[in-house]
């Protein structure tokens, strides 16, 4: 009976599988193939160069700077965004002071906050990036103006112009743009947790801290894991590209402080006419992504709690 099961399932999925093969698998294979060529991206003629492109990667300081920054984003962006998202969602749904009748509830005005948090989500990435760029403007931006207004005339950082903090500035904008989505997502997850659990916990004398770590988080784990993967992709992919491309010095600077892998792929393909080399960077991006997803899958493996 077990024999031929996959074939049976595949029978129903012929069309989607074919589309998947054409539009997802074949570009992959092609890209891996191109990474062994000296293709310029501007003319159809190319020749095989074996592992030259990959050998070059190892010598390429910019590539390693990009790997470093991409991995930094990959490690920090999900942690920061999800923690903030969880914290806010908890405060909006559970963390409020106890009121009559309701067992749990959010802080005062939580529904207004919810809209506020979600607001950045309706703005497109380029607009958010531009807004932050204005705020970071060292000469007339909101941040430095604020510092001046409170008397910190000497604290006038160059923000995006300072290699020490440029990546953090970009990351700040990315967190701001994304945290609202997770507040809403986690709020939805929390609302499906039965109230009796909280009631029982409260009767046992649990404080907010304990309620969060012993009830909310474990029951929300699946959602958090999904969010983690999603944020990881964002950190590696187009979103990071867009923010860095629009906001950073250069882009990618100053002095490669914000160079990330997708941006480097773009620059090598479209600016330098080295599409073959760019695809080999793309393949290394694929490897980073694979490692990331393997780790997340392994770490995230837990018994699902049914309730």
């Amino acid at each position: 009976m077990q024999h031929g099961k996959y074939r049976f399932i595949a029978g129903f999925l012929v069309i989607p599988l074919a589309i998947y093969a054409i539009f997802v698998i074949s570009p992959f294979v092609q890209a891996i193939y191109y990474s062994f060529t000296d293709w310029t991206g501007l003319s159809p003629d190319m020749k095989m160069v074996g592992f030259d492109n990959y050998a070059r990667l190892f010598q390429d300081d910019v590539f390693w700077a990009a790997v470093g920054n991409s991995v930094t984003l990959l490690l920090l962006l999900p942690v920061v965004t999800l923690s903030l998202g969880l914290f806010f969602a908890f405060m909006l749904n559970v963390g409020g002071r106890r009121r009559k009748k309701a067992v749990i509830g959010g802080v005062r005005g939580s529904s207004a906050y919810k809209i506020l948090y979600f607001f950045p989500q309706v703005l497109s990435v380029p607009i958010v990036a531009l807004l932050f760029q204005f705020a970071y403007n060292p000469e007339s931006g909101a941040l430095n103006a604020f510092f001046k207004a409170i008397g910190l005339d000497n604290v006038q950082p160059d923000w995006l112009g300072d290699p020490g903090i440029a990546l953090w500035c970009v990351m700040g904008a990315m967190v701001w743009a994304n945290v609202g989505f997770y507040v809403v997502l986690f709020s939805a997850g929390m609302s499906s947790i039965p109230k009796d659990f909280y009631e029982a916990a409260l009767l046992d004398g649990a404080n907010r801290f304990n309620t969060f770590f012993r009830i909310t988080l474990p029951l929300l784990w699946d959602t958090v894991q999904t969010g983690w993967i999603y944020m990881g992709i964002l950190a590696l992919d187009v979103s990071a590209f867009a923010f860095v491309q629009i906001m950073s010095v250069g882009p990618g600077g100053p002095d490669y402080a914000t160079e990330v892998l997708p941006l480097y792929v773009y620059q090598k393909t479209f600016r330098d006419g080295q599409a073959g080399y760019a695809t080999s960077i793309g393949v290394s991006l694929l490897i980073v992504t694979l490692i990331f997803s393997a780790i997340v899958m392994r770490l995230g493996r837990r018994e699902r709690l049914e309730f």
């Binding site: 570009p27 992959f28 092609q30 992709i233 187009v238 773009y266 695809t279 991006l285 694929l286 997803s293």
Partner: peptide, 10 residues
């Protein structure tokens, strides 16, 4: 997961 980031770039 594998597909999404690599796809758009590749």
């Amino acid at each position: 997961i594998v597909a999404v980031p690599a796809m758009s770039m590749l």
